[in-house]
């Protein structure tokens, strides 16, 4: 069971130990994607002997997992990543973990200044991607439980202490709308070469912290690690913000500078992903802004784009 728990100073989504308090007061530093798409995952094994090698069967792992007390912006992220891992061919490694995971989301009662779910089609009480929804009620003394899928139904059947009754739902977080994602997507369609990208990206250090924390960023690398007799092939998180991501062996790099990389990040989330999969690749969780060492926020870029798109002429 994975839940938001305090680890040192931070609240993180981590394996829950019986008795540990579940922290709903702040948004966890990490996103839940690492439990479906681990930062590093074994996708192949082999034995080596000089120039000879034998590939070993590598079975995808799908440990039975409950994500408890994750926010709607987190649950929505899983629904978004599902699309890319299941269009065309299916990703067995992703799907094995995903199929074994039940998402018990909690309606969001406390947002912060970096949150913008309501600007990207979400809401503090949204149920997208959740199997079960919990809503605090009666001043935090009870939960209202709602099952949203067969998996959620199954979980609730085995739960104790769930009764029929009346309860008054507590108020949800107030997340103001910061920009119109329709106007952002509209502007992006024609502004690949806009001079404004230079300004939007100026502070970016290319550290990729935003991508690693993002619930929808899913780009990966494949790397081998081996001794003389055996080895492992890993799938590791990667990010379009890193300079080597697209660099060819020849030295040619299609995205040669940080401007091109930041543009790719914004374009992918608000233009390319909607075009390819019919949905934004952003849930407004705000982690990228909260943790950016340079103080950047994708919502600031989106607000600037919205202002530009809305301004006459």
């Amino acid at each position: 069971m994975i839940a938001p728990v305090r680890v040192g100073q931070a609240v993180r989504l981590a394996e829950w130990a019986p008795g540990a308090p579940i922290e709903l007061s702040e948004i966890p530093a990490n996103s839940a994607k690492e439990f479906i798409l681990p930062a590093s995952e074994t996708i192949g094994r082999y034995d080596r002997d000089g120039a000879r090698f034998t590939m070993r069967e590598t079975t995808p792992e799908g440990p039975r997992t409950v994500l408890l007390g994750v926010r709607p912006c987190e649950a929505a992220g899983l629904a978004i990543v599902d699309a890319v891992f299941n269009w065309d061919s299916r990703d067995e490694f992703y799907d094995a973990r995903r199929a074994a995971t039940t998402v018990v989301a909690t309606a969001c009662a406390q947002a912060d200044a970096d949150c913008f779910c309501t600007s990207v089609g979400g809401a503090p009480g949204a149920t997208r991607g959740a199997d079960v929804m919990l809503r605090l009620a009666d001043g935090g003394r009870q939960f209202i439980v709602e099952s949203l899928s067969a998996r959620g139904e199954e979980l609730l059947r085995s739960a104790h202490g769930v009764t029929e009754g009346e309860a008054a739902a507590d108020p949800l977080a107030d997340v103001p709308v910061r920009f119109s994602h329709e106007r952002v997507t509209g502007w992006l369609a024609g502004q690949f070469d806009s001079p404004r990208w230079q300004e939007f990206s100026l502070a970016c250090l290319g550290c990729a912290a935003c991508a690693y924390l993002c619930p929808t960023c899913h780009c990966f690398d494949i790397q081998d690690e081996s001794t003389r007799t055996a080895g492992v092939r890993y799938r590791n998180w990667d990010a379009c913000g890193l300079g080597l991501f697209t660099q060819h062996t020849s030295g040619h790099n299609p995205r040669a500078d940080q401007m091109a990389r930041w543009r790719q990040r914004v374009m992918h989330k608000f233009s390319y992903y909607p075009e390819k999969f019919g949905m934004l690749a952003c849930t407004g969780c705000g982690r990228c802004a909260r943790m950016c060492p340079a103080g950047m926020a994708i919502s600031d870029t989106c607000r600037a784009i919205d202002a530009e798109e809305s301004s006459p002429g």
Binding site: V84, F85, W87, D88, S89, D91, H218, C219, F220, D221, I222, D238, C240, F245, T246, Q247, H248, P254, Q264, M267, H268, S271, Y272, Y273, E275, K276
Partner: peptide
Amino acid sequence: ENRMKCGLGKCGRCNVGSAYVCK
């Protein structure tokens, strides 16, 4: 001839716009 890793339309490396060069 973009740089690729998975070849299966997942890893994101070969993206040009909304296109997966590998697919």
